[in-house]
Structures are given as structure tokens and as C-alpha cells.
């Protein structure tokens, strides 16, 4: 295995472009090193992107949107008060990934590019409308987060391409987001089901909504029927029931060591309701704690 720590994304891209065999980018390393230790993937080329300028920066742009460097850790996001105020669902989703120790290393970009349908931050990013900047030999392009994973362990990134920034939209007024996941313990597990809701209100009425489900299909889902179930409502019981039904109907899960088809389908509906209530309360300006202490 060859280890490189390039000083720019262009250099990183060129290294990857010209490498033979298996190439991996190293940001937080919390997936790459696990795969290495377990002999699942031993890359021929490992490109550490943490020496690139600006990769640890969290920047709020003039229009209120956010740009996060690709090596920003979960812990750095959680410690960032105004990012947490704007996008509590995204920040909490990232915070749910692994332990305190893992939070010291793990990144949104890594969570996304690992390609796991159960990645906690991905539904939250999809619901939030987050995009990533992808840099390759031909320059950079902006891609919706939902278009990066193409199946378990697979992404749409071409050889020589890598994510070079995470772009979170401006939050705007009267809006809130939330992410909830189901795990059998209180910590340390991979999501059995994950649900993210981002919505905007006009008065008491939901005017915009995006609902995303994780761990219930080969990739994270953005479910328009879920959004439709609550848009125009005040999140009354009927709307919540419709939301739950739409979430369950959208599931296309598998039975595995972490849960059954039936369980995932049922719990997706339960969590959709609970997450929507939290997002709604946040849009009303209330401070609501998420799942995490």
C-alpha cells in the first residue's frame, strides 16, 4: 500500500487518476481503517486529503449557506453553535455516527462516500438538500448528495474524482430539520432504519418538506409521497398517519442481522412521525433535543 498526502485536490485527483489497483481517499479513516484491519479492502493507493488547505474549515457564506471542508469531523460540527442552530438534524445525524472517539475523526464526506445505505448523515443531508463539490481531472462539478451513492459500497464518482467540499443550503426562516434512527442499543450501532425530515412553515402550515429514509433500500430514499402527506397540513394526526403510511410504503428493505423486512417497514413509519414532530417544533422556534443525549 502506498500512502500519499497531497497538498491540493488537483494533486489528489491526479494521484488517483494515475494509480493502479484499488484507490481509497483517507479523510477520517473510520471506515477505511476498519476495512484494512479486517482484510476487507487493502488499497494499493491511499490518499490522505487532510493536508489540503481548508479541508477543516466550516464557513458560512454571505447568502447564509454553509461550506464544509471534507475533513471537518463530526465533533467539530457538533461544537459549531451556529451550524447546529441552523441545521440541527444534519449535525445530530452526523453526531450519531459511532462513538465520541469516532466523532473525533469521522466526516460527512466519508460517511457519504462509504456508500452504506445505513449511513446516518446521508438521509439528513438529502432532506436538507445538501450538495457536494466533486473535483476531477476536468475540474469541479456540483452534485446532489442523493446522486453520489449508487448502491451498497458503490458511488457515482469516476476514477480520479473526489469530493472536495460539502455545501449546505441556507436554512431560511420558519424551517427545521430532524433525523432519527432506530438502533437496538442507545449508541454504537448501525442504523436499522433512519428517517430525516426537513420542512418549512407558514404559520402553522407546512409549506415545504423533504423526507428521506435510510437503511430501508439499497440507497437512501427521498420520498415525495412522504412530503406530500404533510405539505399543506398542520402536522395533525391524519397527516402524521399519512406520512407514516407513505414512509412504510416506500421501504424496500432486506432482512439481515440488524433487522427484518417487517420491522424496518413498521419502524420507518414510526420514526417518520417522530422526526416530523421534532422538525416541526424546531421550525416553530422551539429547541428540541434529538435522540442523542
Amino acid at each position: 500500500m502506498n500512502y500519499h498526502s497531497p497538498a491540493s485536490f488537483a494533486e489528489a485527483s491526479a494521484l488517483a487518476e494515475n494509480a493502479d489497483g484499488v484507490t481509497r481517499f483517507l479523510a477520517g479513516g473510520t471506515d477505511v481503517l476498519v476495512q484494512l484491519r479486517a482484510d476487507i479492502v487493502t488499497p494499493d493507493t491511499l490518499i490522505d486529503i487532510k493536508k489540503i488547505d481548508g479541508v477543516s474549515d466550516i464557513t458560512q457564506n454571505d447568502d447564509g449557506s454553509w461550506t464544509l471542508g471534507v475533513a471537518v469531523t463530526g465533533a467539530e460540527m457538533t461544537e459549531h453553535a451556529s451550524l447546529s442552530r441552523d441545521w440541527p438534524g444534519v449535525v445530530e445525524a452526523m453526531d450519531l455516527v459511532g462513538s465520541t472517539q469516532v466523532q473525533g475523526r469521522a466526516t460527512l464526506t466519508g460517511n457519504l462516500c462509504n456508500g452504506s445505505p445505513a449511513a446516518d448523515s446521508v438521509p439528513a443531508m438529502v432532506a436538507a438538500g445538501v450538495t457536494v463539490t466533486v473535483t476531477g481531472a476536468d475540474g469541479s462539478r456540483e452534485v446532489a448528495v442523493g446522486d453520489i451513492p449508487t448502491g451498497p459500497g458503490r458511488t457515482s464518482l469516476a476514477k480520479g474524482e473526489l469530493v472536495s467540499a460539502v455545501n449546505i443550503p441556507a436554512r431560511g426562516d420558519n424551517a427545521g430539520d430532524a433525523y432519527l434512527r432506530f438502533i437496538p442499543r442507545t449508541e454504537m450501532d448501525i442504523a436499522v432504519v433512519g428517517v430525516a425530515v426537513s420542512l418549512r412553515l407558514d404559520g402553522d402550515t407546512v409549506t415545504e418538506a423533504r423526507v428521506s429514509l435510510g437503511a430501508v433500500a439499497p440507497t437512501v430514499l427521498l420520498v415525495q409521497e412522504c412530503a406530500d402527506a404533510i405539505i399543506g397540513s398542520t402536522l395533525d394526526d391524519a397527516a402524521l398517519d399519512a406520512l407514516a403510511a407513505a414512509a412504510s410504503a416506500a421501504c424496500n428493505p432486506i432482512t439481515d442481522k440488524r433487522g427484518t423486512v417487517e420491522f424496518r417497514t413498521d419502524v420507518a413509519g414510526v420514526l417518520a412521525k417522530r422526526a416530523a414532530k421534532i422538525a416541526y417544533a424546531r421550525a416553530k422556534g422551539e429547541t428540541v433535543k434529538g435522540d442523542h443525549a
Partner: peptide, 27 residues
């Protein structure tokens, strides 16, 4: 464990708590 699940290898790097099994020596 070698997979970041048990914390027995905890150290800090520049004051940040991490699992040293999930960090390369080169880093």
C-alpha cells in the same frame, strides 16, 4: 477490537479523543 468499537485504544491527537486503531501511524 481493531475496529473502533471498544475504545480500549483511546488516545488524544492534538487534544482530540480518537481510537488509535483507526489512525494510521503515518498520520
Amino acid at each position: 477490537c481493531g475496529t473502533g468499537d471498544c475504545g480500549a485504544c483511546s488516545v488524544t491527537i492534538d487534544g482530540r479523543l480518537v481510537c488509535s486503531c483507526l489512525v494510521l501511524g503515518a498520520e
